[in-house]
């Protein structure tokens, strides 16, 4: 068990940027981002026995992370069953990145106006997933994925412009 835990943690730590990015896309508030981050780790750990190594670890991870974010329900009571977060995880602070990653700051602000599926589409697109991979992850047809992604990109472009940034 300890060995499985170590292998899992090693893999997750290598790819934790995926979880950070999804948390920031799906939650606006820093505390909610931490909660979602924690929830994703928990769901990844619970689902880990289903990872048979037939696909890349990141492919499996994208699905679990996105599915968790899609059905995640904000906690009613923030004090419920939490690990000492401040000591264990640091969700990247948007303010810290201001200046050096200004474009991403605009992106994270703009995606808050997208719906849950549109966020998933943009996330997979930014992760360099092909239309086929996006379709496979979301369980929709390739044509549908292409159409939805194009619409979402147009919508995102419009939101970024509306927010006063040249696109």
């Amino acid at each position: 068990m300890k060995e499985t835990e170590n292998i899992f943690l090693n893999l997750i730590n290598q790819h934790k940027a995926i979880i950070h990015k999804i948390s920031k896309m799906y939650m606006n508030d820093a505390e909610d981002q931490r909660d979602l981050f924690q929830e994703i780790i928990l769901q990844l750990w619970k689902a880990y026995p289903t990872f048979k190594g037939n696909s890349k670890f990141t492919t499996w991870m994208y699905r679990v992370c996105l599915n968790t974010a899609l059905v995640y329900f904000k906690k009613d009571n923030k004090k419920v069953d939490k690990a000492p977060l401040d000591e264990n995880i640091d969700v990247m602070d948007i303010n810290e990145n201001e200046g050096k990653e200004e474009k991403l700051t605009y992106l994270y602000t703009a995606v808050q106006e997208l719906n849950a599926i549109e966020k998933a589409l943009i996330f997979l697109f930014l992760e360099n997933q092909s239309h086929r991979d996006i379709a496979g992850n979301l369980g929709i047809s390739e044509v549908n994925a292409r159409v939805k992604l194009n619409r979402t990109k147009e919508k995102l472009q419009f939101i970024i412009k509306k927010n006063g940034y040249e696109f």
């Binding site: 899992f8 943690l9 730590n13 928990l42 750990w45 069953d81 690990a83 264990n88 969700v91």
Partner: peptide
Amino acid sequence: ESSEGNNISTDMLKIKQANTP
């Protein structure tokens, strides 16, 4: 964009209460 911050520890795996609907 890289992921800054500390590594995820085993404490994070000990939480029992999931928060899906």
